[in-house]
């Protein structure tokens, strides 16, 4: 049943290309999570990276199992749809919580509450980027 040695060459190459692309895109997104400066910048990188990576790796899985079982195996679409629907919802809720916490902290410190985003003002646009 361990079947990747029974794959025809074109399917093996297609699976390999999809796998490598998906893993590389995911790693780039996660590196962005590690390297970007402020929280509101960091939110962007993993959402884009992991969603595109999920699409590519699910495509690799679909190609591999469809050719192995010689029928259309399409249930990886479930994971793609689930990821595409849930990632924006979860991270929008998270950014809402982060903005609430920042605003409450500013109000406690007696600073003006008007600017909730730390890099919204032009004066400190470069302040958040440490490296």
């Amino acid at each position: 049943m361990n079947g990747i040695e029974h794959l025809p060459p074109w399917a093996a190459v297609l699976t390999a290309v999809f796998l490598l692309t998906g893993a590389a895109v995911t790693l780039i997104g996660s590196l962005g999570l590690l390297r970007l400066g402020t929280f509101y910048e960091r939110v962007h990188a993993p959402t884009l990276g992991t969603t595109l990576g999920t699409v590519f790796i699910a495509a690799a899985s679909m190609v591999c199992f469809s050719v192995l079982e010689s029928r259309a195996v399409l249930h990886e679409i479930l994971i793609v749809v689930l990821g595409a629907v849930t990632t924006p919802i979860a991270l929008t809720v998270l950014v809402g919580a982060a903005r609430f916490r920042d605003t409450a902290e500013r109000a406690q410190l007696g600073e003006p509450v008007g600017r909730a985003l730390p890099h919204a003002a032009p004066g400190d646009a470069s302040a958040g980027k440490a490296d």
């Binding site: 990747i4 040695e5 794959l7 060459p9 074109w10 093996a12 190459v13 699976t15 390999a16 290309v17 796998l19 490598l20 998906g22 893993a23 590389a24 995911t26 790693l27 997104g29 996660s30 590196l31 790796i57």
Partner: peptide, 21 residues
């Protein structure tokens, strides 16, 4: 040949995803 490529690219993809984790 292409099977060998698939085996190695599976390994590389797993390493890349491990780095992402």
């Amino acid at each position: 040949m292409s099977q060998l490529m698939l085996t190695y690219s599976l390994l590389v993809a797993q390493v890349l995803l491990g780095l992402a984790i």
